[in-house]
Design a protein around this nucleic acid. Structure first.
Lengths: 203, 203
DNA sequence: CCTCGCTCTCTTACGGTGTAAGACACTATC
DNA sequence: GATAGTGTCTTACACCGTAAGAGAGCGAGG
């Protein structure tokens, strides 16, 4: 019974590997333990429960988002949104988690706080700042969810399995035209992002 | 062994009740069966598997969204977004499902197709129309997710459990100021929605 | 009336899940 | 070498989704 030299960080590393490789559904405590050469219950010495693993993964993702509030706020907010998008696209299997769990972990809160501070410096009220962040973040998450769900390398089955072109001609036509390359996605993303940003302002 | 007089619809009714009452996590086939006075396996006569139950719930939600494409497109698109928001708020427990599952069920597709057709009539290309719909839908879902997660009547624990006001002053200040009434939420929603809509146009 | 066949429901079973409780082994310190 | 953590494993429980098949109930045809 040699010691495995585990740590919270190593466990999260392995969890992220596992999720990237086989998807979220494959992440179970037993499977994660096996990945680390350890029984499932051992993990509970480092983490209180499975939710803590998931929170840890989300937190890492959010903590890695760049926040550089210099210059006109719309410009760095745009960069922030792009950075968030990149962070999410790096581990698309985590998207359902990020989309669903409210931000309450240290890394996520830290990122939020930094953006909020900078927005308040731009004459947003704290409440409005939070709302702008929520709007931006959910916008980005939604876009990436849609993009990652319809991009090559997707887990599930074809995007629209039971699509009858007679009944849904426009949708069928759009899908038949293809959904575009990664560049197309980024292009559409920035287009909609700018649309949104240009309409937001301190009130 | 009396017959229970079940049907797909009745099962989905009960599932929706259950989810509204006890949250998504409480929805299991056994529990749903018990709710209907029936063993779990009986449900498999009407639905192929649990995913079909979830899809059915999402489909109902999406099918009930009003699409009335008359007048200037930004106006009816705005109404569509508001209708979607209302449909989502009616069953907030379904949000994680709606946010996560790609639209592939008949009711959802029907709604998408109707909006897409109307947008194409406004000189959007089919691809762009789909993108506008995606953008609108994910925007609404994201907003409602944020709103429902921070509104009284929420399942989980307090929104920001481990918030240290010294470390996160702005976030703390905003939360201390309160998140507002339902009207405040709708106000912020329409504000951001208009910001987004005013920036979108056929290209 | 019976009986056939279809529709519906239940029973049993399998392999998976998260995790509580506690026993045990290893290791660093005295 | 004995002791006291620290780390790991074993066992167990209650749950999950669902495959396979047995069996009940019921309407139709004889």
């Amino acid at each position: 019974m040699k010691r495995a030299g585990l740590s919270r960080e190593k466990i999260l590393d392995a969890a992220l590997d596992l999720v990237d490789r086989d998807g979220i559904a494959a992440l179970s405590m037993r499977r994660l333990g096996k990945e680390l050469g350890v029984e499932a219950m051992t993990l509970y010495y480092y983490l209180p429960n499975k939710d803590a693993v998931l929170d840890g993964l989300v937190d890492r993702t959010l903590a890695g988002v760049a926040v550089r509030p210099e210059g006109p706020w719309r410009e760095w907010a745009r960069a922030f949104a792009l950075s968030l998008r990149a962070a999410l696209l790096a581990h698309p299997a985590l998207l359902p988690l990020v989309a669903t769990r409210p931000v309450s972990t240290p890394g996520g809160l830290e990122t939020v706080e930094r953006v909020a501070r900078a927005l308040v410096a731009e004459r947003f009220s704290p409440t409005d700042a939070l709302h702008v962040i929520t709007t931006l973040a959910t916008f980005v998450i939604g876009q990436v969810l849609a993009e990652a769900g319809r991009t090559p390398g997707h887990d599930g089955p074809d995007p629209e399995p039971q699509l009858d072109p007679a009944r849904h001609p426009v949708v069928g036509q759009a899908l038949a035209a293809g959904l575009g390359t990664a560049d197309d996605h980024e292009d559409r993303f920035t287009y909609a992002l700018d649309a949104l940003l240009s309409g937001l302002a301190p009130r």
